[in-house]
């Protein structure tokens, strides 16, 4: 959400709704840090469980805190549901709505422009990203399947390509050798230059800030959002709290 803070510095008071488990907690900590850095205030947070479907109470709590921004730190079906409920409570007219993690075209299509209009979202991929590789990919995908690729398609494509590249570099299919060959690998991803950090195998790639368009602004039915900015902000391994690679199960 860093880019949104830079884009609209007048948004000072932020309220968050967070899934109560590691992923949500991680997002919340990162958000608090960013807000503190930018001099904005975190005015409150509501936790909800992984199987919550009824968000009205949290939305009332959020409204009562009188924030400029309501930021949803949940994902998948829960972000869909909570965003819809926020819209149905008329919160879009009162404050800025933002969703930290949108899961791509399929989810946004299900939400539709009536819900998405004016909502800010983070996203890993969007088909209008302006790189030459992405244009090739989108054209090829549309030619093959007759539809627009979403995040899952893009990630599948990138993942497979990365493994192939690793096998080619290592000259073998031995997993250990492939891992080693890919450490520090830099390449042109669909969203721009990316790198696999050698220390902790974190993939450093661009993350997008999106904003929902109104139906009237849409060029075609998949043109749901505009890409406002794209960039990287990753913690170093030690900041992120994982100093060494610990294989699972040991």
């Amino acid at each position: 959400m860093g880019p949104l803070l830079k884009l609209k510095p007048e948004l000072k008071r932020w309220y968050t709704i967070t899934t109560d488990y590691v992923f949500g907690e991680g997002l919340l900590t990162a958000t608090k840090d960013l807000l503190a850095e930018a001099g904005a205030t975190h005015v409150g947070n509501s936790y909800h469980s992984l199987d919550e479907t009824q968000f009205s109470s949290y939305l009332n709590n959020a409204r009562a805190a009188n924030p400029d921004v309501l930021l949803l730190l949940n994902f998948g079906g829960q972000s869909t549901t909570s965003l819809k409920q926020a819209i149905s409570f008329g919160l879009r007219d009162e404050l800025t709505l933002a969703m930290a993690v949108s899961s791509g075209l399929e989810q946004l299509r299900a939400l539709g422009p009536e819900v998405l209009e004016g909502v800010y979202m983070g996203g890993a991929y969007w088909h209008t990203v302006d790189t030459s590789r992405n244009k090739e990919f989108v054209d090829a995908f549309r030619g093959e399947y007759g539809r627009t690729p979403g995040t899952l398609a893009a990630q599948g494509y990138e993942g497979a390509r990365m493994i192939l590249e690793g096998v080619a570099r290592a000259g073998s299919q031995d997993p250990e050798a492939v891992i080693e060959a890919l450490e520090g690998y830099t390449y042109d991803a669909l969203t721009g230059p990316s790198e696999i950090r050698a220390d902790d195998h974190q993939l450093l790639k661009d993350y997008l800030l999106l904003r929902g368009k109104a139906r009237a602004e849409m060029a075609d039915e998949d043109d749901l959002v505009e890409v406002l900015s794209s960039g990287q902000s990753y913690k170093s391994p030690s900041e992120a709290g994982c100093d060494a690679l610990v294989p699972l199960g040991e």
Binding site: D20, Y21, V22, E25, S49, L50
Partner: peptide, 12 residues
């Protein structure tokens, strides 16, 4: 268990 997450770790 869910409410006393400081002791139980909640959903984690």
């Amino acid at each position: 268990v869910y409410a006393f997450r400081r002791i139980t770790g909640g959903e984690d």
